[in-house]
């Protein structure tokens, strides 16, 4: 096109160059600039997804129900995975449980355990601790408890301490009596040591 001789044509010629460039700059800023503000990582759990899928592991499962006498029972674990032993049987890690009784709550805690939802039993294993409302703390290696109606059985040696002193016994079983009250029985040789000194008794 011949050289423009009047200012208007020159202006149009320049505009034909400047305006598209400005548009291009404007358009590209749309993509570049806003991104610089909050560049937050999208939160996602970096759990090994296929391991979870393969194992069908439950994260912090909890079981709660009521016994025949209407006492509520609750049991939670950190993880539980179905065990090969059969349907409805779970291997759980880091369990805590609570059984409601007449005299208050019985607390259970252990490192591991097998929950059988069909037979409604829990076999706790690995430094099991049973705490009662009146201040007894019972420690044993194992504890079998049924959840339908409350029975506990340590099947093995146990040591406990509480208001009456510290005691060791060959075994501890606890069961729910008719009125829903839970009585704990230590047997197979009970030995208790009570220190009157630290009770501040008044020696004559």
């Amino acid at each position: 096109m011949p050289r423009a001789d009047n200012p208007y044509s020159r202006f149009v010629a320049w505009a034909k160059v400047i305006l598209p460039l400005a548009a291009l700059a404007l358009l590209s800023s749309l993509f570049l600039l806003p991104g610089r503000g909050e560049r937050t990582a999208i939160p996602f759990a970096d759990v090994d997804i296929d391991e979870l899928a393969r194992e069908q592991r439950l994260g912090s499962p909890s079981y709660s129900g009521t016994t025949e006498k209407g006492r509520d029972v609750s049991l939670t674990a950190e993880t539980a995975r179905p065990s090969a032993a059969g349907p409805g049987i779970f291997d759980a890690r880091m369990l805590t449980g609570a059984l409601e009784t007449d005299g208050g709550q019985i607390g259970l805690r252990s490192d591991g355990g097998v929950i059988d939802t069909e037979a409604d039993t829990v076999d706790l294993a690995g430094n099991v601790v049973v705490t009662t409302a009146d201040g007894y703390v019972v420690r044993s290696d194992r504890l079998r408890s049924t959840l339908g109606q409350i029975t506990l059985d340590t099947l093995g040696p146990v040591e406990a301490d509480g208001p009456a002193g510290t005691l060791t016994a060959g075994r501890m079983t606890a069961s729910e009596t008719g009125t829903g009250n839970v009585v704990m029985v230590f047997n197979e040789g009970v030995r208790l040591v009570y220190l009157p000194a630290d009770q501040g008794s008044d020696p004559q």
Binding site: M184, V193, Y194
Partner: peptide, 25 residues
């Protein structure tokens, strides 16, 4: 004898009844 010595109890069985707050050897 000194009344603050440890008291030791041995038995075949100990029953703890939480509601009644009793312990029976």
């Amino acid at each position: 004898q000194d009344g603050d010595q440890p008291v030791e109890v041995t038995a075949e069985e100990l029953q703890l009844d939480q509601a009644a707050g009793t312990a029976v050897f």
